[in-house]
């Protein structure tokens, strides 16, 4: 199993295409960082327009590395599923297209193990994308913009987090994002089993994610309690929950607290169930599949 995983990782990371994702993430992050470096204040003024009437807003302090990282994650995590699908959707279909799938399957290796190795490899790729993102978005921003307390805007409230209370939240958020993106990987992986070239699963994965995200974000009461809680896309943004603190009785944010941890854990459980469902289905289908490519 370990050898299979090594081989799958070797194949992923020897492909030039793999690095497109890393380059794409780097350029997106650098563009956001540059924009905020030079015009961060206007962006903040827009964000803070609701409170700048009643408060003195120290924009130059608020625009720090932690906030920049948050803005980057907010913007990027919506697009990264595309990059994840690019590799995960290729795992089986790409080999079918190249004609190497039949060589793989005639090795003395069980198809289940082969599939598990392939999925694990896609998850590792996803995690590496996130580590890369964390490195650039968080570390680089901390270097460029310095650190301070973080003030983030939610729909109807602003959250302030003490600077010593932030890093663990980022680790938790990245951990959660890894699971969320692995769900996308699992979906792309499943669709990959049905196709003989990788365009199909990649495009369908992205389409499904987009359609479901729109459904998740629409404020239509009809969907709110019926479909929304069951869509995995409704739960993909739960990483943000780690940045929301509990409030004490007199309205203070409690350092080190998380507003609604049970909700985040529930979301996590939903995502994990989806991963299990997608991967199991992929394996069952692949075990019975006639390899005709």
């Amino acid at each position: 199993m370990w050898i299979l995983l090594q081989i799958e990782l070797f194949k992923i990371f020897r492909r030039p295409r793999t690095y497109i994702s890393f380059a794409a993430i780097a350029s997106m992050i650098l563009i956001i960082q540059l924009g905020l470096k030079f015009d961060g204040k206007s962006y903040l003024q827009l964000l803070m327009s609701g409170i700048s009437d009643s408060f003195y807003v120290p924009y130059e302090l608020i625009l720090n590395g932690y906030l920049v990282a948050f803005v980057i994650l907010n913007t990027l995590l919506i697009h990264v599923p595309l990059l994840v699908a690019l590799v995960a959707g290729d795992m089986v279909a790409g080999e079918a297209n190249m004609g190497t799938l039949r060589l793989l399957v005639t090795r003395p290796v069980s198809r289940t193990r082969l599939m598990l190795a392939k999925f694990t490899a896609s998850v590792i790729y996803t995690v590496m994308l996130l580590v890369w993102m964390a490195f650039l978005a968080l570390l680089l921003s901390m270097l460029f913009f310095g650190t301070n307390d973080m003030i983030i805007a939610r729909n109807d409230v602003m959250e302030q987090i003490g600077r010593n209370d932030i890093l663990w939240r980022y680790f938790a958020a990245f951990g959660y994002a890894a699971v969320a993106l692995s769900t996308v990987a699992a979906l792309a992986f499943l669709l990959s089993v049905f196709a003989e070239n990788s365009i199909g699963p990649i495009v369908s994965t992205i389409s499904i994610v987009i359609v479901l995200t729109i459904l998740s974000e629409m404020k239509i009461p009809l969907y709110d309690n019926t479909v929304k809680p069951y869509l995995f896309t409704s739960h993909m943004l739960a990483w943000k929950g780690f940045f929301y603190s509990k409030a004490s009785g007199d309205g203070q944010a409690i350092p080190g607290s998380v507003e609604n941890l049970p909700a985040i854990l529930r979301s996590l459980a939903v995502l994990l169930s989806y991963i299990a469902l997608f991967v199991t289905t992929a394996i069952v289908v692949f075990r019975k599949k006639d390899i005709l490519s």
Binding site: I3, L4, Q6, I7, F10, K11, R14, R15, P16, M98, G99, T100, R102, L103, L104, T106, R107, P108, V109
Partner: peptide, 23 residues
Amino acid sequence: IERPDLYKYLSGYENLSLFARMS
């Protein structure tokens, strides 16, 4: 089996060693 399809982006050595390890 039919066409000799291999990992085009890998070298001959890498292709061969990869399948050997899988065996």
